[in-house]
Amino acid sequence: MRQITIIARRELTAYFTTPLAFVFIAIFVAMTGAFTFYIGRFFDRNQASLEAFFSFHPWLYLLLVPAVAMRLWSDERKSGTIEQLLTLPITTADAVLGKFFAAWAFCGIALALTFPMWITVNALGAPDNGVIVVSYLGSFLMAGAFLSIGICMSALTRNQIVAFISAAVVCFLFTMSGLDLVLNFFRAWAPSSLVDAIASFSFLSRFEAIGRGVIEARDIVFFVSLMAFWLFATVVAVDSKKSG
């Protein structure tokens, strides 16, 4: 646990040593705002809720979270520092978790900086703040799930761009798997149990449920076990690929 904290602290600091972190946070905050007001028609809705705000999170994460995750392992392999890191007295799992928590904390910081939205909606009306808290929690969990996919893709290649694109594609599949666009493709031939299984992997339907203020244990279990799965895959990928 001590080792994980030390690694996470180093990684989090590494984000902020380049202007990239600030650019990322600025883009995230600006985009959530722009989407909420222009595309989400925040004022026209005439509702004191952040539903419009949160409904764009999956789409923003789709592009931004792979960008946060892409350098985590591919950069280590490209610059050779992976050999330095993994010959310190730590396990591969320590390193994977340390990096993951750092990236997740970074997403948390970006998410927290959208607080002016919360203030705005409270100033304009009387929203259900319970729903908003649950939505923030759901959004944070979803960011973690996207990240765990991104970090695994990053462990599979030395090239950050490849890591970014493959992470975005896999995240896209997970986001979309509940939509008819994807499901119709499977309905044509697959048994309905498989179609249901695929649909159940959808981030979107889970996140919509959370957005209504209903956070169920099974949704939390879904996101957490998804993260556990991808992080485990990352450990396997790092171990098997480190010689390359």
Binding site: R10, A14, T17, T18, S79, G80, T81, Q84, T87
Partner: peptide, 13 residues
């Protein structure tokens, strides 16, 4: 104490 070939270190630190 192990020094890998080329002494790789985190460049931005």
């Amino acid at each position: 104490g192990y020094m890998p070939e080329g002494a790789p270190a985190y460049d931005d630190m």
